[in-house]
Design a protein around this nucleic acid. Structure first.
Lengths: 203, 203
DNA sequence: CATAGTATTGGAACGTCGTTCCAATCATGT
DNA sequence: ACATGATTGGAACGACGTTCCAATACTATG
């Protein structure tokens, strides 16, 4: 269903209703139920579409560390471009579309030389971190409807943090300025590197 | 609003409607709007309640590493007991209830001796990981309505993974057995330790 | 104590959503 | 040509969040 992806991309998650989709397809809402069982399946199919495209672009030959970074960035960029995908992956992490990501990450852990007992933990940490950032991006996209400025939103949060009592909240107070200026993508990658550094200690 | 928390705990997220809440309070749905602006605020207030209670129980004196683990576990346990809190924290991560958690984590990074430029990244990695697991738990709780067995659900996913082609999905195929037997809480903590190990390398 | 003014309540009503249902239409094999 | 099953379009249902407002409770003042 390409039409569904178009609606989601242009007008956001809440704009995808069976009525809106039926209107765009010039049909009735009942007809859509012949092709999908319910709204969950509709969203799952749309997300699967986007993820499959994102993962197919990831290079295969690189070093395991670089490959993990590439996969993670692929997921990040796909969700950055289509925030609703983040929410969907998050709601249904066991759906088939995720298996490719799981294997992409886990497979590189094998070639990284992580001992077997630790593989599951390392894999889980990476996947949970990636899903966490995915969900955060999706949540922010919902909170900041694409009209308003993301920078303005961050500035508002930072301002609120700066007004907190520095004695009670020294860290939050201090980190507010960095919140205002940080780059989401760089920071995401820094987190991946941090976890990879942790993984290297158990190797 | 304690009644809201009771409904959420006993019957899950989707059972909290203004009508259900009004019925339990023996009043009208309109009366509730005098106390909260909308449903978001209702959920935020309920989640704030639970988080504040969870964070107040966290000990203060321990070593920074232990303190971070304690805070993370406090959040984990609170969400394990009230899955709807995970979904709510996730949807609105900038809400006031989170600031205590943010400060609890970040403040210990200061005393851990993490150099200032890296503090933001380390903090972000921990927070995103914790929120990621929080959301996952919440998603699982929604997928596995408290009646059915969680073990049975995991076994079903594991069985699906085991039927995948081992040549194409070696890792996922192999990790299926560990998925069946793993302990969520231990694994969450293992992830925290992994990130802390990574943080130790930049110290 | 009486009364004006405000805070709070209870429940009807509105519009939207996911979903169901079914008569009408289309496609295909005989 | 026509019978059978696949597919469509749109009306209808029940539940939800929210709004609205007359009715009631409370509180300060004369």
């Amino acid at each position: 269903m390409k039409a569904a992806v178009e609606i989601l991309d242009s007008d956001g998650e809440s704009a995808l209703t069976f009525r809106a989709l039926a209107a765009r397809l010039a049909t009735g809402s009942g007809a859509i139920y012949w092709h999908v069982a319910d709204k969950n399946e509709l969203l799952a199919a749309a997300a699967s579409d986007v993820i499959a495209r994102a993962m197919s672009g990831v290079v295969n030959g690189a070093q395991p560390r670089e490959a993990i970074r590439a996969i993670a960035l692929g997921v990040f960029d796909a969700i950055d471009a289509h925030p609703w995908v983040g929410a969907q992956l998050f709601r249904e992490p066991w759906q088939p579309a995720m298996v490719q990501i799981f294997e992409g990450i886990g497979g590189r852990l094998l070639t990284l030389g992580v001992p077997e007992p630790a593989q599951f933990d390392c894999w889980s940490a990476l996947v949970n971190y990636i899903l966490g950032v995915a969900g955060q991006n999706a949540a922010n996209a919902r909170l900041v409807p694409s009209g308003t400025d993301r920078t303005a939103f961050l500035a508002a949060v930072a301002a609120r943090w700066e007004q907190l009592d520095p004695a009670e909240y020294p860290f939050v107070h201090q980190v507010a300025t960095q919140l205002r200026e940080h780059d989401d993508r760089e920071q995401f990658l820094a987190g991946i590197d941090l976890i990879l550094a942790g993984i290297a200690t158990v190797r």
